[in-house]
């Protein structure tokens, strides 16, 4: 997996103090696992999407996301002096640190679209917080990822509009999916143990909690215009959730994820020492 990747930042990694390095590792693992897992869920639509165009789109989205994960695992491996393949494939299912939003199976089309929309918009905020990162290797990768994500955002937004205005059943399915997913969507920008440390070190522009507010403020006009679920109350300038974020935003993974993990690690687990 790591063979074709740019040499990114062993020198930069060596210059970080230990608490910052730990905090950065936690953030990179969360981001990489998010991209990796959504990529594998996306790939499940290959061949069975409702339109041929969407077979192509979801396969391409999957390839983008797994490619992003690959580079993020590489950055993490340089930080920890570890093997990126082992990080990507060599952990038990409950050791993954993706957000609970990505624990759900692909379910129906509206559900997959709703999840992509919530994830893509939250991820856009996270990338924005890293665009001017003091950790140069990450800033470089993020600059590249953000440009690719403009296509993901176009796709997700167009489909949300299409399903919302697409008659009774598509609209109902989209609404149900959003209602079901909102609590878990709040896991993507949930605070990490070290995110304040990362702000102090200039790695992250502001704490994830502030990013979450920008995300919600940015989404409100579209969802309100389309009359779609947006379970938040205005409290001054802040938006307070009317739903509860799970206690363990990046752990306690579902049986569905354990099944997916079994699939995507099966080749690696068949011979962990093999040189591919």
């Amino acid at each position: 997996m790591s063979t074709s990747l740019p040499a990114t930042g062993p020198e930069a990694a060596a210059q970080l103090d230990e608490p910052t390095r730990e905090a950065l590792a936690e953030l990179l693992l969360a981001m990489a696992d998010d991209e990796f897992v959504i990529g594998f869920w996306d790939s499940e639509w290959t061949g069975i999407a409702p339109l041929l165009e969407e077979d192509v789109a979801f396969s391409s989205l999957a390839q983008d996301e797994i490619g992003h994960a690959q580079v993020l695992y590489q950055l993490l491996a340089e930080l920890r002096d570890a093997d990126p393949d082992r990080i990507a494939f060599g952990r038990g299912a409950q050791e993954y640190r993706h957000a609970r939003l990505l624990d759900h199976p692909r379910t129906d089309w509206a559900f997959s679209i709703a999840r992509r929309f919530l994830y893509d918009t939250a991820d856009a905020v996270r990338l924005d917080l890293l665009a001017a990162s003091s950790y140069a290797p990450l800033a470089g990768v993020v600059a590249k990822m953000r440009r690719e994500e403009t296509y993901h955002l176009l796709h997700a937004t167009a489909w949300v509009e299409r399903l919302a205005g697409g008659g009774e059943e598509p609209r109902r399915r989209l609404q149900d999916a959003l209602e079901r997913l909102w609590p878990d969507a709040l896991c993507v920008l949930a605070p990490l143990e070290g995110d304040r440390r990362l702000v102090e070190a200039g790695v992250l522009a502001e704490p994830l909690a502030d990013g979450e507010q920008r995300w919600l403020t940015g989404l409100a006009p579209l969802l309100e215009r389309l009359g779609l679920p947006f379970p938040f109350r205005r409290a001054g300038a802040r938006l307070e959730p009317a739903v509860e974020r799970p206690a363990s935003p990046r752990g306690d993974h579902s049986a569905s994820f354990e099944w997916l993990w079994g699939e995507f690690t099966s080749v690696y687990r068949s011979d962990p020492e093999a040189a591919w």
Binding site: T121, A124, V125, D128, A131, R146, T150, Y151, L153, L154, T157, R214, G218
Partner: peptide
């Protein structure tokens, strides 16, 4: 500056 939810122009 890229807007927060920038999409490519269609």
């Amino acid at each position: 500056e890229q807007p927060l939810f920038a999409t490519i122009p269609v």
